[in-house]
Structures are given as structure tokens and as C-alpha cells.
Design a protein around this nucleic acid. Structure first.
Lengths: 205, 205
DNA sequence: CCCCATTATTAAACAGTGTTTTATTTTAGA
DNA sequence: TCTAAAATAAAACACTGTTTAATAATGGGG
């Protein structure tokens, strides 16, 4: 009595400490350099024990990816401070970019790396709910803009995909170091400048 | 006499066969699954011989990345069939997307993977000339549009970065499988539809 | 033609990796 | 206290990129 409950609690604790360590090492040294043996050593367990808590390395990174989405969506909701949906949309874009700039490794994990999606494929999941949740949120803000006549009426899916692609493209070029050394005059401000002209393009129509 | 020339030729041949095999294996099984031992076996040399021809694995992939840029730029120049620079710009976008869809692994290598840029860093190169060449080409077409008054005058750098980011974002979401399973009604045509509304946005101003 | 230095090639080793198999220890209930 | 189950760990497997040390081939000079 109570003992099995404690056991479950202990298992969850261990699981959490694996995740916390994985996250810490990941942020510290990058994905490539974070190994199962590495994590095991830090939490003072043997490498094989980790496989009692996670199917494989991809599951660890999938779990971190899911946690990161909780944080991103939380940040995205800060855009609700703006009453005007168009202002909210602009704020949303800035928040998204800020999240990527503040957490490049996590952004990589969420939107670029193959590991989390590979794990999803393994599970035969038909939906990428983390991505869908964030995308649906964007769509709802765009819909509000269209409803209020602030943006020319178009297919919401396409417009959402356009906006997502644009900000994703900018931060991805930056994270994977393709935005540098191509002769830009002020590379450190290119994302901000590009975001501004993109915003104007959207609004003026 | 003549013998040392033959030697050089033989060395180049071996180098080329390493590259060809690497490319073939890479396209067949993906980057992760292509190993030095793999390549060595196919060309019937020992793994250590490869290190006589390339510093490391990253150099092989950097070289393939460079070759792929030659092909991309060649494709991009097909846009010159269009007299009107705005039409050329639209054609350029379509060609870029088509290249990515036809050669997703090569696109990955050129614009997403870290290996080629890591190799560049090792060489202390101050410019990513492959990327710069393609980006400069895009800028020249945009400049022509602005010169002819077909696009509202803006900072060419930013506009070029916006257009590049958008198409790069779209194809990257697709290549790294983030564009699927998020509830889109016709995911197979989302890139085309999105490109069309983006084109309209650019032109209308 | 033979020797020798140079070049090319390889075998073997190093230091890792993710993961699985086979023990071993710990634990909690009968 | 004994036992079955659960948790943990040691060792092994099959790999990886890369380096070192040894071997084989090559072509020019005496």
C-alpha cells in the first residue's frame, strides 16, 4: 500500500532526470555531441538503464521537442495582449523569431532535425500534433485578420503557410549558417529588416 | 617525362571516383547511412586511402555541395529566357523550388546540413562563395525589376533575403517533413499555392 | 639491371557510437 | 526467510570516423 505509488513516482523522477540531463547537455554541447553514455554518466546510471525509460535516443529528443512546443505556444499566446488581430499577427511573428533566436538548438530540434519526426513515423502517428497546434494558432489569428477586413481575403492555409515559411526560412538560414558570408552589408539586422518589409507587404494589400 | 602527368591524371580519376561513389550512395541511402567504409568498398580501396584524397568526410560533402551549386546556378540561368525581369523573377522562384523538389538530398546538403559550412569554417574562409553567387544572381534580377519600376523600391538585400527565405522555408519544411500532418487540405499542392499568393503580394505593390 | 627513395596502399588499432544480451543486484510481498 | 519480480549494470555487438604503423608498388639514377 502506497509502495507501488512511490515506485511509479520514482520511475517518473528518473525519467525526468534523464530528460533534464539530456536537455542540459544538448543545450551545452549540441545534439551531435550528446550521447547516451554521456547522459548516463551525469545521472550516475549505466547506459542500458536509459533504455528502460526510453525506447531509443529519438524518443528522448522527441520528448524534448514536445516540451519545447509547450514553451513556444506559451510564448505565442503573449501575442494576445494586442486587441487588433493584425497587430497580434505581427507580434506573433516577432515572438516566433525571438524564440528561435533565444533557443536555436530547441528550434532546430522542433523544426529542422529529423529525429522527432522519425520517432513519430515509428509510432504510425497520422498527425504531428505539436506542429499542428502551433499552425492552427497562427491560422486563427490570420482568420481574425481576414474577418475584420485587415488582410485581403485568401486561402487561410496558404497564407498561414506563407507566413510560417518566411519566418521559418529566415531563422533556418541563420541557424544553419547560410545567412552569413554572402555579402550582406549588415547581416546582424537582416532578419529584422526583412521581417519589416514582409509585414508591409502583407498589410498594404 | 609524361609519367608524372599520368600520375596526376590518375590521382584526379581516383578522386573523381570517390566523389561519384559518395554522390551515388548519398542519393541512394541518404547522408547518415553513407560511410567512408561504404565508399571505400564500392571503389575497392581501403578506407584509409580515402584520407589521401580528402581531409575528412566533411570535405567530401563540401565538394559535392560545390558541384551541386554549379548545377543549381545553371538551372537558374534558364530564367533568362524571360525578357521581363518580373517574369524572370517568378521563373527563378519556380526553378529554385523545382531544383529542391527534384534533388532534395542535394538541396539538404547545400542549404540545411552543417557539414559543408563546418568545412568552410575549418578553412577560415570569409565568404561562402557558392551561396553568394546564387544570392547575387537573385539580387541582380530583383535590381532589374526595381530599375524597370516593376517592384516597389526597397532595400535589395532585404527583398532578396525575403524571397530566398520564403522559398527556402517552404522547401525546407517539406524536406524535413514539417509540412505534412498539420491538417492541410491539399498538402501536395501547398507549395504551389503558397508561391502563387506570394508572387501576387510582390507584384501588386 | 638493380638499388633506393618516394609514393601509394593497406592492416590494424584507437576511441568512440547506439543498442542488445546476459548477468547481477535490489526490492517487496508471501 | 525465501522467492518471484523488477531494476540495474557489465559486457558484448556491430558499427562509426580517423590515425598510425607497416607493407607494397613505382620510377629514376648509378
Amino acid at each position: 500500500m502506497g509502495v507501488s505509488e512511490r515506485r511509479i513516482r520514482e520511475r517518473l523522477d528518473t525519467r525526468q532526470s534523464i530528460l533534464a540531463t539530456a536537455r542540459a547537455l544538448f543545450l551545452l554541447k549540441g545534439f551531435e555531441a550528446t550521447t547516451i553514455r554521456n547522459i548516463a554518466e551525469k545521472i550516475e546510471y549505466s547506459p542500458s538503464t536509459i533504455y528502460q525509460y526510453f525506447k531509443d535516443k529519438n524518443e528522448i529528443f522527441y520528448t524534448l521537442h514536445t516540451e519545447s512546443f509547450l514553451e513556444l505556444v506559451k510564448q505565442m499566446k503573449r501575442s494576445e495582449l494586442h486587441e487588433n488581430p493584425l497587430e497580434q499577427l505581427i507580434a506573433l511573428g516577432k515572438i516566433y523569431i525571438q524564440f528561435a533566436e533565444d533557443n536555436p538548438e530547441l528550434y532546430d530540434l522542433m523544426f529542422i532535425m529529423e529525429a522527432p519526426i522519425d520517432f513519430l513515423n515509428l509510432l504510425d502517428e497520422t498527425q504531428w500534433i505539436e506542429g499542428k497546434t502551433a499552425f492552427d494558432y497562427l491560422k486563427s489569428v490570420i482568420s481574425a485578420c481576414i474577418y475584420k477586413g485587415l488582410i485581403k481575403e485568401t486561402d487561410v492555409d496558404s497564407l498561414a503557410y506563407l507566413i510560417w515559411s518566411t519566418v521559418h526560412g529566415m531563422v533556418t538560414l541563420s541557424i544553419r549558417k547560410r545567412g552569413l558570408r554572402i555579402g550582406l552589408s549588415n547581416p546582424e539586422t537582416i532578419i529584422e529588416r526583412t521581417f519589416n518589409i514582409f509585414s508591409k507587404l502583407l498589410v498594404k494589400s
